[in-house]
Design a protein around this nucleic acid. Sequence first.
DNA 1: TTGAAAGCGGTACCAC
DNA 2: GTGGTACCGCTTTCAA
Lengths: 331, 331
Amino acid sequence: MNIYDIAKLAGVSIATVSRVVNDSPNVNDKTKEKVRKVMEENHYMPNEFARGLGRSFVKAVGLVCPAISDDYMAKAVACLEKRLREHGYDCILHCSGYDKEDKRQAVGMILKKRIDALMLIGSNFAGGKEEDTSYICEAARQIPVFMINGYVEGENIYGILADDYQAVYDATEELIFAGKRRILFLSNSDSFSAMQKRKGYEDAHKNHGLPILEELNICVENTINGTKDQLLLRRDLAFDGVIATEDGLAVGALKYAKATGISVPEEISVVGYNNSELSISCEPELTTVDARGEILCKTAVDSMMTLLEGKRINSKTIIKCHLVKRHTTDF
Amino acid sequence: MNIYDIAKLAGVSIATVSRVVNDSPNVNDKTKEKVRKVMEENHYMPNEFARGLGRSFVKAVGLVCPAISDDYMAKAVACLEKRLREHGYDCILHCSGYDKEDKRQAVGMILKKRIDALMLIGSNFAGGKEEDTSYICEAARQIPVFMINGYVEGENIYGILADDYQAVYDATEELIFAGKRRILFLSNSDSFSAMQKRKGYEDAHKNHGLPILEELNICVENTINGTKDQLLLRRDLAFDGVIATEDGLAVGALKYAKATGISVPEEISVVGYNNSELSISCEPELTTVDARGEILCKTAVDSMMTLLEGKRINSKTIIKCHLVKRHTTDF
DNA sequence: TTGAAAGCGGTACCAC
DNA sequence: GTGGTACCGCTTTCAA
C-alpha cells in the first residue's frame, strides 16, 4: 500500500496525498478528510525511506554512549530520548564500549545514518590525547555534535558540562575542614570528568597549604567488589577520607571499611558521585554529588533545537553540581 | 557526493559502484580497488535512505522499553544492542513509559520506521487484560515481535522468558523450610512477571499446607525510600520474611528493618530479585534471584537470526533462574 | 486548490 | 565482469 494506491482510491493525485500526509494548509478540507479516510481504512504508513530520500533532514539524532548499563548514562539516555521525541526526533542508539577505537567506529557508523545531530554521552569521550578525539571534530564537520559532560574544542561542537571541578573542590574542602589529612582520591578512568575532579581535589589541598600525597591517588575498576578487593590489598594507606568519582567506588570503600572493622563516618569519611540509587542502598547512606544529569540533558536538547532554528548557541555550558549530604560525612 | 559522482570519477558505471559498495564478488579486483580509492578520497557514504528504498529490509530493529533507567532494562538494551550490531543491525530505541496508551503509541511510531523486527523489553508489556495487548498482535502482523521476559499468545510473537514462577517458588520454599510463616510478598506492579512470581509464592505455600495471608501481599512504589516509608506505615504486619519482585523493594525492606531495629537475617529474611548492584551495595548483602537477563537477550537475538534465515523457531522459550545466596537469608 | 513530472540515490535485473 | 535502465515511494516545483 503506497501513495499511488491511496491516490487512486481517493481519486486524487499523489501530490495531494503527500500534502495531506504532511498536513499542508493548501488542501481543501473536504479533500483532506476524504484522503485521510482512505489512508486510515487501509492502514497506510508512509515509507520513511522514501521521505528521507526526498528531503535533506530526517528528524533523528544519534546517541552514542560507552555503556548504557552505567546508571548515569542510562538516566541520560532516558532523558534525552524523552525530550528529543517530544520534538519529533527519533533516537538511534549505539553503545560503543570504552575502547578508543570502538568509539571512533561507533561514531563513524552512526554518521552514515544521515542523522541531524550527534550526542556523545559521558565524559569518556573527552580527555585523553588530542589525536584521540580528532574523529569528533570530523563528525562535527557534517553535523552538530553535543557532548554530555564532555568538551572538545572545535567548530560545531557543543559541550554541556557539570562543574565537576568545583563540586569536588568543595567536597574536599569540607573534609579538610573536618580535619582529614589523608584523603584518598578514588577513580576508575582518565576521562575528562575524572581529570576535572582530580584537579578540584588537588587545588583544595594546595589552597589550604596541604601536600598532595601521590600514594593516595588510586585508580580501580568500577565495581563495588573490585574496589573493595583493591583496597584490601593496600591496607597500608591509612586514609581518613575518600573522594570517589563514582558512587560504586565509594560503596566499595564502605565495604572495605566494613571488612576491616573501620567505622564510617567516625574513622573514615566518604563522598561519592552521581547520587545514584546505590548511594541510598548502602549503609551508612552515602554523601554524594548530584551531577545534575537531567539538567545537562535538558540543556543539550534545548540547545540543539535552538541551533536547528538557525540561531547561535554557546559552545560551552557549565552546570553547577549539588552536594547531597547523607551519613558518610557526619562529622 | 553520490553514486553518480563516484562512478564518473572512477570511470565506471553506477552499477559497478553499487557492487563495490555491497562487496559483490562479481567485480574485477582491480576495478574494485580503483573504485574504493575514489570512494575513500571523497569520503563517500552511501545514502541509507536510498538503499532502504530500493530494498525491502533495512537491517534495523526497534527496541521498546518502558524505562531505560531501570537497571534490568538498561542491561537488556546494552546486551541486545551489542549482539544485534554484531549481526549488522541498528537499534532504534523508544522508551515508552509504563502507561498503556504510551506503550501502544510507542509501538505504533516505531513500526513506521520499517524495522525488520520489534523487541519489547520487560514483562510490563504482557499481563493486564487481553485488549490491552492487542496492539502487539497487530504489530506482529507486520514484523516478528520478540518479547523479553513477556509473552502474549499470537502468530509471529515470540516470548523469551525467565522462569520467574519457579524461582520464587523455590525461594519461598526455602524460607518456609527455615520456619518462616509470615512471608511478605512485596511487588510494585501487575506485570506478567509479577503475576508469575506471585503464583510461585502462593503455590509454595499451598503445597506445604500453609495459608496465603492476604494482608502480606503489599504493592509499593519501586524506590528504596518509598518502600521503606510504606512499610513503616504498616508496622502491624509482623512479617518474618520478605520475597520482593525487585532488588530495590528488598533494599527498602532492609531499610525498614534498620529503622525499626529489627535484625536481618535473624528476625526477618529477605530475598530480592534481579541480582543488581543494589543487592551487593546494601548491608547485609542481599540474597537475590539472578533472572538471567543476558541469556534472555542472547536467546532472543539468536532466535531472531534463525527466524530471518527462514527457519522456524519456538514461540516460547523459558530460561531457568538462579538463586544467588548472600547474607539476608543466612539461617 | 490541484495535478504532472522531475528528482532524491540507490538496487537489481537484463544484455552484452 | 560491466553497463544500461527500470524501478523503489515520496517531496516539491511549476503550471494550470
